[in-house]
């Protein structure tokens, strides 16, 4: 397989995971106008819980439990760290800082429960290799891509076709009018937060099987990369989050050729450049986001 093709494939695989994280950021941002800086911490906590379950059962049960755990944790963060501030009409800056505080508390809880050491992910998916034309891949990589893309498609259907999705879109576009026609906006806020958090945990589990390990540090980094991908694509935009994640994944893989051990710096270089050149992101509106 040629180097460029290999980089492209690898980039898309890890990028699809970044897209999932970015989708969580964007969903939450589009509805609450708050960047959830507890996102990475929620991801780590869900992943570490999922890992414990995985060791006793299998990957898929672990994945499900991780998503549920993070979803619950996300709902809790929204109810405890954001909702009371919104009720008092606190400025968005205060809400944002409140999510940082929530993130720290979750990190500390994870540290106390799981300890600081890096945890290996047991080989839980078949390592079988296969070739598809010029592209070589493994079952693990296929599973990662399948889960990510499948969830993105599901999310698209959820947002555009279901009653809950319409409630989300109406709340994003005009919360007061949404309430006037029967949408319980507080519940939509909480459930959207939970949904975004569950996606983060899935991403965390996928990164776990990809790199065969999980710890607090990789979780934090994953959260940051998801954030960069969301900003890259235009925060609040669903297609933007998908595109941003894929682009970041590919850019990292290609960038690593020259920067080798500074692979993780690629994301932050991109962040700085984007904020300077096109702060609304690739698909973002200059003033308003769109769901």
């Amino acid at each position: 397989m040629s180097l460029l093709l290999e980089q492209l494939v690898n980039g898309v695989i890890i990028g699809s995971v970044y897209s999932l994280i970015a989708l969580g950021f964007s969903l939450i941002f589009s509805i609450l106008e708050v960047i959830n800086f507890a996102h990475g911490s929620i991801l780590v906590m869900g992943t570490l819980i999922g890992l414990v379950v995985l060791q006793r059962t299998n990957f898929w049960v672990g994945l499900l439990i991780a998503a549920l755990a993070s979803g619950l944790l996300g709902a809790l963060v929204e109810k405890a760290a954001i909702y009371p501030l919104r009720l008092r009409r606190a400025p968005l800056g205060a809400q944002f800082i409140s999510t940082i505080g929530a993130g720290m508390m979750i990190d500390i809880a994870a540290l106390v429960i799981f300890g600081p050491k890096t945890r290996p992910f047991p080989p839980s998916l078949p390592a079988t290799q296969f070739a598809l034309g010029p592209v070589r891949g493994s079952v693990v990589e296929l599973a990662i891509l399948g889960v990510s893309l499948g969830l993105m498609a599901l999310l698209q259907v959820l947002v555009n076709r279901t009653r809950f999705g319409k409630a989300i879109r109406a709340t994003v576009q005009n919360p007061r009018a949404a309430a006037m026609f029967g949408v319980d906006v507080d519940t939509v806020n909480t459930l959207t937060f939970a949904l975004g958090s569950a996606l983060a945990a899935v991403a965390g589990m996928l990164m776990g099987v990809y790199y065969n390990m999980a710890d607090l540090g990789t979780g934090f980094l994953a959260g940051m990369k998801g954030f960069v991908a969301a900003v890259f694509g235009g925060i609040g935009s669903i297609p933007g989050a998908v595109l941003g994640g894929l682009a970041l994944g590919v850019a990292e893989d290609i960038g690593a050729t020259w920067l080798s051990s500074y692979r993780d710096a690629v994301a932050f270089i991109i962040l700085i450049v984007i904020l300077l050149v096109r702060p609304q992101g690739i698909l973002g509106h200059p003033e308003r986001q769109k769901v």
């Binding site: 109406a170 576009q173 005009n174 007061r176 009018a177 769109k290």
Partner: peptide, 9 residues
């Protein structure tokens, strides 16, 4: 007042 339709629906 001001109609307040959902603009992107």
């Amino acid at each position: 007042d001001n109609r307040q339709v959902f603009p992107r629906m």
